[in-house]
């Protein structure tokens, strides 16, 4: 039986009168890449922000490694956050710090007694993994959009997370860079043995990176399954149209 690392049940979240999540259920299994698809403003990002405690649900349950996120105190939440890597849509690199300092920032504050040599080795190793070893002393303003994404992913990997959350990893990138990021997401899963949730509305990204898809429409998951299960046998017209409006290379 597959081990569940994230278990979401009846999750509801509203902003004023707008109910973005209307009682969603979802499971993330160990080692899988789950893609959450949906149009802009459908609540995809809200879902993963609730996972890391940046937002709090109105109702329902969000369990990660069996722990209910909303009931954790600050210390417990931080302990849980160490197991989760969050790659932000706009990379969220600290723009007053170099790439090295960006990567050192979470490491030195969470892992004690590391020597300078160990820190450098770890940073260089991760920059190698994302294909940007030469960027170590650059400022974020000197990097392209794709490079920022890669560094952002490397920074989240520095704490050896067990779950990776990618918020729109290919948004605003050219098709070639998108493909590189998609391949990196797959590589991260294989190399670091992570379970991932990828939030996107890019079907190419979904097809390349995802083992399973979950389509979020009107605050609920309208279809969950493999890419073919979701789109080939789609009954919901909006799920079908989601596919029709995207060009997928075979």
């Amino acid at each position: 039986m597959e081990e569940t690392v994230v278990e979401i049940r009846g999750l509801k979240k509203a902003f004023g009168d707008l109910e973005v999540l209307q009682g969603v259920d979802l499971d993330l299994f160990k080692g899988e890449n789950l893609v959450v698809l949906g149009k802009s403003g459908s609540g995809k990002s809200v879902l993963i922000k609730i996972m890391v405690g940046l937002l709090r649900q109105d109702e329902g349950s969000m369990k990660i490694f069996g722990q209910e996120v909303s009931t954790l105190n600050k210390k417990e939440l931080n302990a849980l956050r160490l197991k989760i890597g969050f790659s932000f849509q706009a990379s969220a690199l600290y723009d007053s710090m170099t790439v090295r300092e960006n990567m050192e920032f979470p490491l030195v504050r969470n892992v004690k007694n590391l020597t300078k040599a160990e820190i450098t080795k770890k940073i260089e190793g991760l920059l190698d993994s994302v294909g940007l070893p030469q960027s170590i002393n650059q400022m974020p303003s000197e990097l392209s959009g794709g490079q920022k994404k890669r560094i952002g992913i490397a920074r989240t990997l520095i704490l050896n997370p067990e779950i990776m959350l990618y918020d729109e990893p290919t948004a605003g990138l050219d098709p070639i860079t998108c493909m590189e990021i998609n391949n990196l997401i797959v590589q991260v899963r294989e190399q670091f043995n992570t379970s991932s949730i990828v939030i996107t509305h890019d079907l190419t990204c979904a097809k390349v990176t995802g083992d399973r898809m979950a389509v979020l429409l009107d605050g609920q998951f309208k279809a969950i399954g493999t890419f073919d299960e979701v789109f080939a046998r789609a009954k919901d017209e909006r799920v079908k149209s989601f596919y029709d409006y995207n060009f997928i290379e075979s």
Partner: peptide
């Protein structure tokens, strides 16, 4: 830093 989610990034990295 707030509007570019850098503060959120610090928070989710348990700092």
């Amino acid at each position: 830093m707030k509007v570019t989610e850098q503060i959120d990034a610090m928070e989710v990295s348990a700092t």
